[in-house]
Design a protein around this nucleic acid. Structure first.
Length: 579
RNA sequence: CGGGGCAUAGCUCAGCUUGGUAGAGCGCUCGCUUUGGGAGCGAGAGGCCGUCGGUUCGAGUCCGGCUGCCCCGACCA
């Protein structure tokens, strides 16, 4: 490509609303242009990067017996009604009223289309297992697009779908996909950390996120200092430390003025927050049910820990949670700010009357706690479980964090980091085949619900991640595998000779199989050409000017190195091939 | 959805406090000069000051509504 004929131009300054480095550089270097919040045009250079990523993805997917296809982005409402997600996704999906009682959704994802296809194409176990994938646009009305390529309303995703006769078949296939994902990120030059993720209300046994650690990321994940354990904060387990005292104190009610927070209580009593218990009140609505069919949940946890709502939701069967109102709290007999299960009518199990109390296992690690007395300005000291109160359910509902002991090896210390989610593998199981009754005949002659897995990677987000990692103060430093062009060729002279040499070299390099962007712009100063080359970031730069010719040929420089070599014109192709 | 910020030329921003003819740098066009790190001189083009309403003789400037964009948080198979 000749720069003299290329569309758009580089910017000396980035728009002031761009914050992340990748966002600024991709705009400045003319790879992307914003159209609206979370909506971008991929300019010719950016599109070439996406195509390179596309090729890597296709290669790896094909390698594990996947087939590339292309599914529609306009989805009839009916297929989403069948899985119950038309209503569930109403806040996220762009839903279009096409008139005449026809409604369409713009593809936020493609499980519905795939399950419809499976129903049509897959008849028996002989048609399984299969994997199909496509790379196409997704639309999600994100509440807050951010960070340029990091969170988009319209984005490009590689989504793969595997289908199986049995759970064993899915389990068997899953590691191949997992390995393909590692290969993909490796080929893009990105180090990712695979972490166990929350399987959430979608059920299924296993889910992995591939995280790129980055302060600008949206995910929190946990790593162990000792073993290779890594998990999403919503799935991370840790060891509750602390022992019960040998002899227990008596329960004793004390006056605690102005102690509405755990910290205030601990300060007032001169104890650590781990010597207190705290209560959290939520309203839990079962999935797919109306809110009034839900129930009040009283969660108890040691004072130094926090409840993780996703863990809590999972422990309760995937319920929707919202904070309880003050009226709902008082109706149970508890007093906000001074609440505890002591003296409440605690339900024996989910079907019994009384208050549903769920406790984190941490309340068994320690004793003689200070807890609320369900009376304004009063707490109990010397509280011990189970002597002084009952719980309905004991579960792991605490959020893992810095300094906790690893739940995997039991020795290392956990630390929390921010990350960008680069990919996600998910065992969907029967989530989509069940409501649509999508079956295949087994060898036993009976219909079996089809097991599914889905596996996503955002191409534009991945492009952003690559730039986050590969840049310097002058611009982008593309890895070879995804660079829009291999070579940035520059004519620095105004005389005939360098121009003629460059024109010829441009042809020769392309004939030798390289992709080349050629800065042949006349009347543009060398300084400008250098700045643009650094900004755009092609791996190899070749420049010809009076000075290089005096030194015997063309100057060759790698973008990721400061070294410059002058190479004789005759040796140039061979030299570049050897790089 | 809650909190905060911003909106003036293609980009970065001044002008607003104290209302009175629309500004700068970069970019763009033309001419001359220059040609190895965003070069110089000269001449130009380019703006319904986001939008609607209010106050005023007069609003980019003051007041209110709306919209858009950015950041933090909530949310996010």
């Amino acid at each position: 490509m000749k720069l003299s004929r290329s569309f758009g131009k580089t910017l000396r300054e980035a728009p002031s609303d761009a914050e992340m480095v990748s966002h600024k550089l991709l705009i400045r270097a003319n790879f992307i242009r914003p159209l609206g919040a979370g909506i971008y045009t991929y300019m010719p250079l950016g599109y070439r990067v996406l195509n390179n990523i596309h090729a890597i993805l296709s290669d790896e997917m094909d390698d594990i017996d996947g087939q590339e296809m292309l599914m529609p982005n306009l989805h009839p409402k009916e297929i989403w009604d069948r899985t119950g997600r038309w209503a569930q996704y109403s806040g996220v999906m762009f839903q279009i009223d096409a008139g005449g009682n026809r409604w369409y959704g713009m593809s936020p994802t493609h499980e519905e289309v795939v399950i419809d296809l499976i129903g049509r194409e897959v008849d028996s176990y002989r048609d399984l297992p299969r994997m199909v994938y496509h790379i196409s646009k997704k639309y999600r009305d994100e509440a807050r697009p951010r960070g340029g390529m990091i969170r988009l309303r319209e984005f490009i995703m590689k989504d793969a779908y595997s289908m199986h006769l049995s759970e064993e078949s899915l389990d068997e296939y899953y590691p191949d996909m997992y390995q393909a994902y590692l290969n993909i990120f490796n080929r893009c030059g990105i180090d990712v950390i695979p972490v166990q993720a929350d399987t959430g209300a979608m059920g299924g046994k296993s889910s992995h996120e591939f995280l790129f650690p980055h302060d600008g990321g949206e995910d929190d994940f946990i790593q162990c200092s000792n073993c290779d354990y890594a998990a999403n904060v919503e799935a991370a387990t840790f060891v509750r430390t602390g022992d019960k005292p040998d002899s227990l104190e008596e329960l004793n009610k004390i006056l605690t003025p102005d102690c509405k927070t755990i910290q205030a209580v601990a300060d007032f009593c001169g104890i650590a927050t781990s010597q207190t218990l705290k209560a959290v009140f939520l309203w839990a609505t079962p999935p797919g049910k109306a809110e009034k069919e839900g129930k009040f949940v009283f969660a108890v946890i040691r004072g130094d820990l926090d409840v993780n709502e996703v863990k809590l939701s999972n422990a309760l069967g995937g319920v929707e949670l919202r904070p309880a109102t003050e009226e709902e709290i008082k109706a149970t007999g508890a007093m906000p700010g001074y609440a505890s299960p002591i003296g409440l009518n605690v339900a024996k199990d989910a079907d019994s009357d009384g208050v549903y109390v769920i406790a984190d296992t941490s309340i068994e690690n320690g004793g003689d706690f200070v807890v609320g007395a369900n009376e304004v300005e009063y707490h109990y000291t010397g509280t011990n479980y189970p002597r002084d109160f009952a719980v309905t359910q004991m579960a792991d509902i605490a959020e893992a964090g810095n300094g906790h002991v690893c739940g995997n090896c039991g020795e290392g210390t956990l630390s929390s980091r921010k990350a960008i989610e680069a990919g996600h593998c998910f065992k969907l199981g029967l989530r989509y085949s069940k409501p649509t009754n999508t079956t295949a005949l087994g060898p036993d002659g009976k219909p079996h619900l089809v097991y599914m897995g889905s596996y996503g990677i955002g191409l534009d987000r991945l492009m952003g991640i690559i730039v986050e990692k590969y840049h310097d103060e002058s611009g982008i430093v593309w890895p070879r595998s995804v660079a829009p062009y291999d070579i940035h060729l520059m004519n620095l002279g105004k005389e005939e000779e360098p121009k003629a040499l460059c024109d010829q070299l441009y042809k020769d390099l392309k004939a030798a199989g390289f992709s080349v962007i050629y800065d042949d712009r006349p009347k543009v100063n060398p300084g400008v050409k250098f700045k643009d080359a650094d900004l755009m970031g092609m791996p190899i730069r070749i420049s010809i000017g009076r000075r290089s010719l005096e030194n015997g040929g063309a100057e060759v420089k790698l973008r990721n190195s400061a070294d410059r070599d002058v190479v004789a014109m005759d040796d140039l192709i061979a030299h570049v091939k050897a790089l």
